[in-house]
Design a protein around this nucleic acid. Structure first.
Lengths: 112, 112
DNA sequence: ATAACATTACCAGAAGCGTGTCAACGTTGT
DNA sequence: ACAACGTTGACACGCTTCTGGTAATGTTAT
């Protein structure tokens, strides 16, 4: 079965710390796309394995959701979207008003 | 009650097509932050009203979630996060493999 | 003084996300 | 041929998002 140079889904899961289920889910979400054998088996190569490992790290360090990552991808590929979002954020963020607001939010959370 | 130049929450809702409830929610999420009167009433000025209108437009045209918008804001204010995400996406998107994948996803959706 | 608005604090319900698990069935190494 | 792995599809559960409601209370215009 080995097919050295590429791991099948269970092996890739064991290697990266994800579950096989999640590897399929990540493919569904378009975040990590393995090749397939003729029979349809997923094949994870080095680049996919690294991608999976660094994805865990990303989530751990920054608390990112998968949907947010998918959205970041949309931002790069859809210039129109990117510009609209940028424009919207720009008109908000020049007033420094929300800094104080975040301060208050933080206080609210601490009080709980 | 008028206080021309600024609308209270109900009037701002009527004006922008949101519900008063949602205006309070949007404030909670830090997306549109009105000033307050001494008694604590929210006051929406022109810039907030425009912000509210364009927010509806953003959602309508692009199907954006509020969390995604909040994430886009994080991306602008946290350079470390931005770089990490960019790096992660870059290693994926140079292989053109995902274009075909999106094609297949589209087909799956049509078949439903 | 009263009606019409505002405030916060809750509960509720529909929809989506992140996971696990199970069933029915196909592939592969020995 | 058989065990061990893979495939898709479905159901389920806990959590969060978005949205509406209600209750108890404060403010303001007339």
């Amino acid at each position: 079965m080995a097919m050295r140079e590429s791991l099948t889904v269970g092996a890739a899961a064991a290697e990266t710390g994800w579950s096989a289920r999640m590897l399929r889910y990540l493919e569904d979400q378009g975040l990590v796309l393995p090749r397939r054998t003729a029979a349809g088996y997923r094949l994870y190569g080095l680049s996919e394995l690294n991608r999976l490992r660094s994805l865990r790290e990303l989530r751990r360090r920054f608390g990112i959701e998968l949907t947010e990552l998918a959205f970041a991808r949309r931002l790069r590929r859809e210039p129109e979207l990117r510009h609209a979002v940028d424009a919207w954020l720009a008109t908000a963020d020049d007033g420094g008003s929300w800094v104080e607001w975040e301060q208050r939010k933080h206080e609210r959370l601490l009080a709980a």
